[in-house]
Computed example of a mutant assay.
Amino acid sequence: MPVGEIQTAEAGAGALLDARGQAALLPDLLVEARRVVATVTSGWHGRRRRGPGENFWQFRPFVDGEAVSRIDWRRSARDDSVYLRDREWEAAQTVWLWADPSPSMLYRSRQASASKEGRALVLVLALAELLARSGERIGYPGVMDPVSARNSAERVAANLASARPDGGFPPTGRMRRFSEAVLVGDFLDPMEALTERIDAMAGAGVRGHLVQVCDPAELAFPYHGRTEFRDPESGAKLTAGRAEALREEYQRLFDARRLFLADHCRRLGWSHVFHVTDRPASEPLIALHARLGGLPAQGGARA
């Protein structure tokens, strides 16, 4: 069964109703995002890095060729090494946040605590809250230009409530070189088209972070007997007489697709986090913190 083209019929009946009600749910999702933030905030230290600024960051060993004026003689006098006093870089960075609004994101099985779209929005709003505290500029492609404000999460939620874009990949015309983009979705588009769009962003100098959201039923394929599957975007249907006979091949294709996407991100210097919606939202948020904080990208990290 082609992964990304066929989704289970459980998404069908309430999909339209869920879509219409999503704007009304945004205030609740913002509350949920702040609850998630509260669980990780004690370990969140912003996106600190060395550079021009007034605040002390760290001591590090002196290396030949660096300015002698930056040596901290008091710290160096404590042992036989010579140390420099680094300051923290205070320049605000632009981070673009995006949650996939495709119909496939509305899917939620009985095993999940939230739809894929709901979880994606919670992650985006929580990340906006945390990055705003660090003074970063937050934008949402096609919805909101970058702003640096403490209430960035509220602004994102308010703009999404009135101007949620259509499905597909986010518009990149406003993204500039050296900015960062956090894209949260199921990424079930045809792989050739998906990698082409990712490559275009990377070629423009944007550093990306993909959070691939998956429902537990999409991972385990727990279906038995006669089952009808429906594509929520095209309406195409597939009826399987013995759904369990498809499980092994489905899981092979699903895993191959996930690993290919993770490896493609790694080769571009992007990060990739895989998240299943029966797990806490704090897990991918912590993983994103590490990537946005400048730690080496690890394609395929699971959270």
Rank of each mutant, 00 (worst) to 15 (best):
E5W: 11
G12E: 13
A19I: 12
R35Y: 09
V36M: 09
T39L: 13
T41V: 15
R47V: 02
R49W: 08
G53D: 03
F56R: 09
P61M: 07
P61N: 08
R70E: 11
W73D: 09
A77C: 07
E90M: 14
L97C: 01
W98F: 11
D100W: 00
P101W: 05
S104Q: 05
M105I: 02
R108F: 05
Q111P: 02
G118S: 12
R119C: 12
R119D: 13
R119I: 12
V124C: 06
V124Q: 08
A126N: 02
E129S: 07
G135L: 05
G142I: 00
P146S: 05
A149G: 02
A149N: 06
N151Y: 10
E154W: 05
E154K: 08
R155E: 13
A157F: 05
A161E: 10
S162I: 12
R164W: 13
P171Q: 08
R174K: 13
S179R: 08
E180C: 14
A181R: 01
A181V: 09
A181W: 06
L188P: 03
P190D: 12
M191F: 14
A193T: 14
E196I: 08
A204C: 06
G208F: 06
V213K: 02
V213W: 00
A217W: 11
E218H: 08
E218S: 06
A220M: 12
F221A: 05
G225H: 07
P232N: 06
A240F: 10
G241I: 02
G241N: 08
E244P: 09
Y250G: 06
L253V: 07
D255H: 11
R257G: 08
C265E: 03
G269K: 04
H272Y: 10
V273P: 01
V273T: 14
F274V: 11
R279Y: 03
P280F: 00
E283D: 15
H289F: 11
R291G: 10
L292F: 01
A297M: 09
A297T: 06
R302G: 05
R302K: 12
